[in-house]
Nucleic acid binder design. Structure first.
Lengths: 189, 189
DNA sequence: AAAACAACTTGATCCAGGTTAAGCAATGCT
DNA sequence: AGCATTGCTTAACCTGGATCAAGTTGTTTT
């Protein structure tokens, strides 16, 4: 039983012990070494990933070969290539461990089964996506209206774990600036 | 019966005629004149808005008084201040009609009732938010990696209705550039 | 421990898009 | 009709962050 994971669910929805068992059984534990990928561009992403220990980044590579970090996921966060996951088509996203990590993996098929058997799971993910959408809209809005230095300050304030544990190059990409600019911003602070 | 609206639901989920009736009854028809607001900053946004006719923009105003367009919603799209809607706290978003418009409005309370009475409604919104999240992530990614001119080209290609019907100043804000820049881009094309 | 590589910093120069300021055309108001 | 406002364009100049190019420091690998 993945107690820690199940608590994340029971914070939001009620589940009987039998349902908790059933849910927990759908998740498979996997270890991912630093710099190893768990999702690759060009493949259909068939899993949702819950980060138990460690950290990941999801990123795309543009036609010039430049990487763009979409998400940095520490413990207790979900990460996936949602476009590929929901469309069942090959995606453009890579997902790579930033540290030696441990994840709980839920497959597309198992999730569809859960939606049928335990309909309240639908609510859990409805709430999850709702919040994710709001957070992403805020990030987009800030990207368009707030200069990079202030966005970095906010990242340090709101997500100190990211600022401490993640390499500058990935944070810079996540903020949409170059590593050189972020280095200068740090110096300036 | 709001037939057109109900079809949007039955494209994604199955509903009995009685459920369709119940769902349809939760929506109230409202007319909004051009430039009139339906949601204002500082208030709790208690509604989800389905655009039946016309168009809307949602936007915030930053500390310098500059407006930032978050979303442009034409017919068949949903618009709201989702942050305020889900947290029940006052929001920062304004939502304003860009043309004389007609909307179907669903209140927070009615939606919670629907989630209880017709659980498959939960699925509809789970799917809606899933897709909205993916679309927003793509937009953020392009904002950070693609120059403004190409983003405008893509907007014209993918959302011709917006390019034709919406004022340049709002499209520019949506793209995160000034009206002057967008004017130059148009000239250049 | 040496060599190789990865992460970060620093400096010089460049450029997309911002800012400021005018002007014009179309629409609305009295 | 006449005046004000809104929407769009153009032009001159400015700037935040990019790009290019060298370092420096730290960490693996052999």
């Amino acid at each position: 039983m993945h107690t820690h994971l199940i608590e994340r669910f029971t914070e939001k929805i009620s589940l009987t012990p039998a349902e908790q068992e059933r849910l927990s059984d759908c998740f498979k534990l996997r270890h991912v070494r630093k710099k190893k990928s768990i999702v690759q561009e060009g493949e259909v992403c068939r899993i949702l990933i819950f980060v138990n220990k460690g950290s990941f980044r999801s990123y795309t590579i543009d036609e010039k070969g430049v990487e763009h970090v979409l998400q940095i996921a520490l413990e207790n966060h979900w990460v996936s290539d949602l476009y590929s996951f929901i469309t069942r088509k090959p995606g453009q996203v890579h997902i790579e461990a930033l540290e030696d990590s441990e994840v709980l993996v839920l497959s597309y098929e198992d999730l569809q089964g859960l939606y049928q058997e335990i309909p309240v799971i639908e609510r859990y993910f409805r709430l999850l996506y709702e919040r994710a959408y709001v957070a992403l809209q805020l990030r987009l809005n800030e990207t368009l209206s707030v200069p990079a230095e202030e966005r970095y300050r906010e990242l340090v304030a709101n997500q100190p774990g990211i600022a401490q544990r993640v390499a500058l190059i990935h944070i810079a990409s996540y903020l949409g600036i170059t590593p050189e600019s972020l280095s200068r911003i740090r110096k300036h602070m």
